[in-house]
Design a protein around this nucleic acid. Structure first.
Length: 561
RNA sequence: GCCACCGUAGCUCAACUGGCAGAGCAUUGGUUUUGUAAACCAAAGGUUGGGGGUUCAACUCCUCCCGGUGGCUCCA
């Protein structure tokens, strides 16, 4: 809405001729109004009732300032380069007129006519004013974020990964980025990537092939796999690309299945083990995201193993072996297995496919568990829609049970996608897929690692493995020299050569839970040795030769992982 | 998403019944050159999560939104 306000001695106007078909039928005789505020109005495209109210307020404001109690409302489309439709504009003019009538003597010129007019402006500073009334900015302001996320720490133990994650510079949540979308800080990314590299080494040792797949995928893929009805709620709204729906992937399976189709022709190609640290996105409800344990975008330590029915049990045992080996090294403790089976009696609709194949799959993995000798609990109704699974369960610092990892048998989707291999008997057969994530998601695993270790990560995982501290400025050269040596040997090292007391620097390094603190003072400089303090140990080892220290650290990293 | 509680400086917390927003740590600038968990001085740091309301006066009361915590549901 645009308005022009003119405080006049008088105005004279008369309607001459209709300018538009929908011109108002009213008295168009010549009128003269003395001592008045003339309000030329032009409603614009997009104006609404709220704008009309604001316009009235604005007119009242000016009328009050110039002390006018007589107002002439004068429709004047030429104020705007983007006028609204005449019907709307007339409606608004009438609304303004009505609203003003409560407090003022109001006159109005006809709408939709060519008009002749003459007026005498008073010429004082407030006698000519124009106003543009636009939609308020309140709505925009409402959406402003604070830019940070305040954690309510009062009832959290200091070993909660959200507190440790902040103190150790692992991750950061910002309201500007969005809840459930963690940013990995340098220390955190070092940790995350160390785990990713470690898993890759382990998996390649076990015969896995690494692949890489894009983050979005056509919606038609999920229609084919049958995931859509089961998964739509936890998927983000599709992105329209040239008229086609694409989804952020909530899982990596379909991508890997397409790779299977490209690679596998014969039973001789099986088992095929595809692996990827695959980033997936799930639309989590606002009340459930927290820290790194429940997030909206996360990296699965994902793999799909394609097998013949005969290979299922043996392959499953290999998966269990990998679980055990990895968990021992990474030191995930106090976990247990849950065998999640279907509940055909009470909830048959949740599970699809051939009951005989379900039975086979359930029997095989139960047998695999027994043969491998792992204890487990069975729970019916917890299976996936496409097959039975085992989940690795763990308790968080608050004692709540969570699933940290999973391995699922899929007897449904391969058939649905028409995946096959030529068997030895010259018949096309559908493979069985074992979906498995040993470390589940790296996000969740890192959360539990932080909590279980109280932030005292083993040296091979620690983002900073060694901190070198100088005592005085005289020792800075040697600090730099030792740093270079450690760096060349691939040891992640920080230096602290600030002019603080040794006590201060030691305290800071201990708070950061760095495995080794190396102190260099005049004595060390003279002897060419190091004073080494292990994390949490007050006893300091003096006179350590740099070469020995480096060897020891490298040896520890080798042994403990 | 639902129910309950909560939101003050980067962090931990003060601020009486509604009455001038304040410390410690961290940061920055100086001083200090230190021997294994906190040297000294100074400065800077805020639209009290945001909008609206009540009031002479709002961190404080009301209301809507945003965010967090616990639980439910769901999940890796």
């Amino acid at each position: 809405m645009k308005i022009l306000l003119v405080h006049c001695d008088y105005i004279e106007y008369e309607g001459k001729k209709k300018a538009i078909k929908t011109a108002e039928e009213m008295d168009t005789e010549k009128k003269r109004v003395e001592e008045c505020l003339v309000v030329f109005t032009s409603a614009e495209d997009g104006d609404d009732r709220a704008i009309v109210d604001k316009t009235v307020e604005s007119i009242k404001d000016v009328a009050g300032q110039v002390k006018a109690n007589r107002i002439v409302v004068y429709p004047f489309v030429h104020l705007s380069s983007n006028p609204s439709k005449p019907v709307v504009a007339l409606d608004f003019v009438k609304l303004i007129e009505e609203a003003l009538k409560k407090d003022y003597e109001v006159h109005r010129s006809p709408f939709g006519w060519y008009k002749a007019f003459e007026l005498k402006c008073k010429g004082h500073p407030l006698s000519e004013l124009s106003r543009e009334i636009r939609p308020g900015q309140e709505e925009k302001k409402k959406k402003q974020t604070r830019g940070k996320i305040i954690l309510d720490r009062r009832n959290l133990p200091p070993t909660d990964h959200r507190i440790l994650g902040d103190e150790l510079g692992i991750f950061h949540l910002s309201d500007d980025i969005g809840s459930g979308l963690p940013l990995w800080l340098p220390n955190g990314e070092t940790l995350r990537n160390t785990l990713i590299k470690f898993m890759r080494e382990m998996e390649e040792k076990y015969g896995y092939k690494y692949v890489s797949t894009p983050h979005i995928v056509k919606g038609t893929m999920y229609e084919k796999t049958g995931h859509l009805p089961y998964y739509k709620d936890s998927m983000y709204a599709p992105i329209d690309i040239e008229g086609e729906d694409y989804y952020l992937k909530p899982m990596n399976c379909p991508h890997h299945h397409v790779i299977y189709n490209k690679m596998v022709k014969s039973y001789r190609d099986l088992p095929l083990r595809l692996a990827e640290p695959g980033m997936t996105y799930r639309n989590e409800l606002s009340g459930v995201t927290y820290g790194l344990i429940r997030v909206k975008g996360f990296t699965q330590n994902d793999s799909h193993i394609y097998v013949t029915p005969e290979q299922l049990k043996a392959e499953f045992i290999k998966v269990l072996q990998l679980f055990k080996e990895v968990y021992e090294i990474v030191q995930i403790k106090d976990y247990w297995y849950r065998l999640s089976l279907p509940d055909f009696k009470n909830n048959p609709d949740k599970f699809t496919g051939d009951p005989k194949e379900w039975e086979h799959a359930c029997e095989e993995i139960r047998a695999a568990m027994k043969e491998f000798g792992t204890k487990f609990v069975e729970e019916s109704g917890e299976a996936a829609f496409y097959g039975p699974k085992i989940d690795v369960q763990i308790k968080n610092t608050l004692g709540k049970e969570e699933t940290i990892a999973t391995s699922q048998v899929d007897i449904v989707v391969p058939k649905r996608l028409g995946m096959y291999y030529m068997d030895a008997d010259d018949k096309k057969k559908a493979p069985i897929v074992i979906h498995r994530a040993i470390l589940g998601s790296f996000e969740r695993t890192i959360a539990y690692l932080l909590e279980q270790t109280e932030g005292k990560l083993p040296t091979w995982l620690a983002p900073v493995q060694v901190k070198i501290v100088s005592i005085t400025e005289r020792n800075v050269d040697m600090v730099k020299e030792i740093f270079e040596k450690l760096f060349e040997n691939g040891i992640r090292t920080d230096v602290d050569i600030r002019s603080n007391t040794v006590e201060y620097k030691i305290r800071e390094a201990e708070v950061q839970k760095i495995p080794y603190i190396v102190v260099i003072g005049d004595k060390e400089k003279e002897a060419g040795t190091l004073a080494v303090r292990k994390r949490g140990q007050k006893k300091v080892e003096f006179g350590v030769k740099p070469e020995k220290f480096i060897d020891d650290v490298i040896q520890e990293i080798k042994e403990k992982r």
